[in-house]
């Protein structure tokens, strides 16, 4: 696996987008995408946590789990790392950057159960990335996720008063919009692709 980290960064934002190509982090994607401001807040928090956990999980996996043949424990270890990291970040931000805490605060606990975070760590192991590649993958996935949720929030604000059939309101129409967005992003797949 010898891919330029820069390629991975660009690809994970546009062509291998976490939501639109890998369907990860859908729960909060649908629940929180009603307003641009809150979506942007959640997006920032996700990007931050993704960057941190992808490095920590990489180091733990390569230097602790692999040498001792404990790869099968990775699910438990990764989820604990993520929960602990989120908790730690919450405490640090609250102590030193209170303004940021008030804008991100409520989103942080939500992130522990966001499957995009665990998904990035698992993809990183399966695709055998190096440290630099994992870092690029973490940042890129976070940015891609933010891009998708902010774009969706913008569309949802515009159609707030549109006459949508009753059964389709809420999650239904959101999924259809996401489908159209995914279709648009497929148009970019000629630029870069990673598998």
């Amino acid at each position: 696996m010898d891919i330029n980290p820069m390629t991975i960064l660009i690809a994970s934002i546009f062509t291998n987008n976490m939501i639109l190509a890998n369907f990860l982090g859908m729960c909060s994607f649908i629940a929180v995408s009603k307003e641009i401001k809150t979506s942007l807040g959640l997006g920032q928090a996700v990007t931050f946590v993704l960057t941190g956990t992808s490095i920590i999980n990489y180091l733990i996996y390569t230097y602790l789990l692999e040498p001792f043949g404990l790869e099968y424990l990775r699910f438990i270890v990764f989820i604990i790392t993520i929960a602990a990291f989120v908790q730690l970040v919450e405490m640090i931000i609250e102590r030193y950057v209170p303004t940021l805490y008030y804008s991100l605060g409520i989103f942080l606990p939500l992130i522990t159960v966001n499957c995009a975070i665990l998904g990035v760590s698992l993809f990183m192991v399966i695709r055998e990335y190096t440290l630099l590649q994992s870092l690029a993958f973490g940042i890129g996935s976070g940015l891609g996720w933010t891009l998708a949720i902010v774009a969706l929030a913008a569309i949802r604000q515009k159609i707030k008063n549109a006459p949508i059939p009753k059964g389709l309101q809420g999650a239904g129409v959101t999924l259809i919009i996401t489908g159209l967005m995914a279709l648009a992003f497929i148009g970019l797949s000629g630029v870069v692709t990673i598998q």
Binding site: L168, A171, G172, V173, L175, G179, L180, A182
Partner: peptide, 22 residues
């Protein structure tokens, strides 16, 4: 081909939600 790519999944689930809610 469209159906096995991601957008197909989003559309199908959207339609199923619609039918189920109705």
């Amino acid at each position: 081909i469209f159906m096995i790519m991601p957008p197909g999944a989003f559309f199908m689930l959207g339609i199923i939600l619609w039918l189920a809610n109705t």
